[in-house]
Amino acid sequence: MATEAAPGEETGGLVFHPLDQFIVKPLFNPEGAVHWYTITNVTLWLALAVVAIVALFVLGTRGRAMVPSRSQSIGEVLYGFTYKMVEDVAGKDAIKFFPYIMTLFMFILFSNYLGLIPASFATTSHIAVTGVLALAVFLTVTIVGFVKNGVGFLGLFWVSSAPLVLRPILAIIELISYFVRPVSHSIRLGGNIMAGHAVMKVFAGFAAVAAISPFAVLSITAIYGLEMLVAGVQAYVFTILTCVYLKDALHPSH
């Protein structure tokens, strides 16, 4: 199987490498090995996300103006949006997790949009990245649930509104769905971003054929627009699901 993606074996003259854009390689020595401390393209684009966040939230708001400047009002809108989301979905007592959720939301949002810059590297398309994010949410929610409610947190799996006969079965289903959460949570984000980038790359491959290249370019444009939407929506969905899980942890009763 190792030879299937070798360029020589591609048929029809079209060369697709839709996944090459996701390869992690060292930034300064592309042929070198990737150790855990190596500065790679992942590092670069993660750092750019940090730079963008600092630029918006620290430099943009440094005026502390009563009538906000443009960048300050963007920061305020994002702040207010996230705050309201946490308050509405997770409840008033979840406000102390607001900085945590804001961090996740801002990181995913900025990474998604930075990944849409042509020739960039989409950090959130990697299962390693989204898996860590989802696992962090999963662990936080589980720990918070047990610390807040003790054994009562297990009531999340005991559907007291269902008939007694069904409850053990439902408990098993709930338990499985609880442990599948981090998987679906991470793959939803990573898969969406990866799918969008891969599809764009496939259409870029079609653009090499003169006859269909106008169609390919138009398609790339359209899909790029769709990906702009998806980048925002997936960040929003990841965050709001985090809020929903947090609500489950704080109020486990069904």
């Binding site: 992690v24 990737v34 150790h35 855990w36 401390y37 190596t38 790679t40 992942v42 590092t43 993660l46 750092a47 996300a49 940090v50 966040i53 600092v54 939230f57 620290v58 900085p99 945590y100 804001m102 961090t103 801002m106 990181f107 950090t123 990697h126 390693a128 990245v129 860590v132 994010l133 962090a136």
Partner: peptide
């Protein structure tokens, strides 16, 4: 590459968290 990504991701998240 997982170790590398996870390491830098954690660094990034911590930096963002503290900045925020």
């Amino acid at each position: 590459t997982f170790g590398n990504q996870i390491f830098w991701l954690v660094v990034t998240l911590v930096v963002i968290y503290f900045v925020l």
